[in-house]
Amino acid sequence: MTQQHHTPARGDGEEPDAPVPAAVQANTQAVDDLLDEIDDVLEQNAESFVRGFVQKGGQ
């Protein structure tokens, strides 16, 4: 599990000085936390999982 914490890559054009509300900070932290553990959460072999996800059409 990697410990590096990049900020999500949507910084272009954002005001750097704009105050970040607490809820948004929590949000960003939660996304980072999720990515920290993503390899444990995702099905072991992403490629075969995605390939095997075949559904019948429905309504």
Partner: peptide
């Protein structure tokens, strides 16, 4: 999108 962009960037 937020999760995906962060994953892609990382």
């Amino acid at each position: 999108l937020q999760v995906l962009e962060a994953l892609r960037a990382r």
